[in-house]
């Protein structure tokens, strides 16, 4: 029983931390975007605008919830809930510190990939149930994009699995801490796999240059067109939480997670996560959006074969490998 109480406490702590970090991340992005466009970003609420996302959350909470008359009631309300659960759920298996994870699951990587695949469902449910043409088009694009980039994501994640012979994220990080980070050695497998992982991660979390499902200049707001108040906020939250957790996973799979000089611990994971997270926003405010068919062609003609080659390379490396 004690074990279960411990996992309940851990779960509450991790979920609240992710929510708090997500709030902070929204502030960070707005500041960052502001600086990149020679603006100041939020400055009014709290010191250097730090409380702006909190104010926004309270504002959204007070807003009236409007549902279009011809929308599907049950699905329309279910979608935001499901989106938030899918995005936050992936945080369960992230190894936080040596021997510490909210749920230390043997098939952790598989769980992450599975819940990542489910993430597309709430998006399409939202698009379909809104009974709005923009929303439906956004939902269709989201499905095509997410299932396409699922494949390179999986192939890239297979490289650390093959090299460490485990699907347990804690075990993968432990091996990297004892030996080398996967992006460092063998770097000719680790770095390309990491690059593919990053690209697929951008696409999976609908980030520019892959934010086609909610391309605001074409589709108003994509699947969230008809959503107001807290339901919209949950989609927004899910998107940021997904990016944040995917960054943490990239750090765990390729950059040694909590490992680092001067003592391993949570601070290294947070540092690596924020560096990856920051680079996502750097890309977002620098590049333009791809067209839907270009996006799919990049995936299927370049990323997938490259991923297959990397997986086979990793297989050969451990089958004949000079290293244990």
């Amino acid at each position: 029983m004690n074990v279960h109480v411990r996992s309940l406490v851990l779960a509450v702590v991790v979920v609240s931390t992710v929510l708090a970090l997500t709030t902070f991340a929204i502030w960070f992005e707005r500041k960052f975007a502001g600086r990149m466009q020679s603006r100041l970003g939020p400055t009014r609420v709290g010191p250097v605008g730090l409380l702006q996302p909190v104010a926004d959350a309270f504002k959204l909470m007070q807003k009236e919830s409007i549902r279009p008359a011809n929308a599907d009631w049950a699905l329309f309300n279910l979608a935001p809930l499901l989106a938030a659960v899918c995005a936050l759920g992936a945080a369960a298996v992230v190894p936080l510190a040596p021997g510490l994870a909210a749920a230390d699951v043997d098939l952790g990587v598989l769980f992450v990939l599975a819940i990542g695949a489910v993430t597309v469902l709430p998006v399409f449910i939202a698009g379909w149930s809104s009974n709005n043409k923009f929303a439906l088009l956004g939902g269709m694009r989201a499905i095509a994009q997410s299932i396409s980039y699922e494949v390179p994501l999986l192939l890239a994640a297979l490289v650390p699995i093959i090299l460490s012979g485990s699907m347990n994220l804690s075990e993968i990080v432990r091996q990297q801490a004892e030996g080398h980070w996967i992006a460092v050695w063998p770097f000719f497998l680790g770095i390309p796999a990491f690059a593919i992982f990053l690209l697929a991660m951008l696409a999976e979390s609908n980030r520019i240059p892959f934010d086609i499902p909610e391309a605001e200049s074409e589709l108003v707001a994509g699947v969230t067109t008809e959503y107001t108040g807290m339901k919209f906020a949950l989609f927004y939250l899910a998107e940021y939480a997904h990016t944040l957790i995917a960054s943490a996973l990239g750090a765990a799979l390729f950059l040694g997670g909590w490992d680092g000089p001067f003592g391993p611990g949570l601070h290294w994971l947070l540092l690596k996560t924020f560096v990856l997270f920051g680079s996502v926003y750097w890309v977002r405010w620098t590049l333009l959006r791809f067209r839907s068919d270009q996006l799919l062609r990049i995936c299927w003609t370049w990323l997938v074969p490259a991923g297959v080659v990397l997986v086979m390379g990793a297989g050969a490396w451990v089958a004949w490998g000079p290293l244990p």
């Binding site: 074990v3 779960a11 979920v15 809930l81 938030a84 659960v85 759920g89 369960a92 909210a102 699951v105």
Partner: peptide
């Protein structure tokens, strides 16, 4: 499995 289920339940309750 139980710890994973607990975590998912916490996320559902939060949302």
């Amino acid at each position: 499995a139980v710890s994973l289920a607990i975590f998912l339940a916490v996320t559902v309750v939060t949302a």
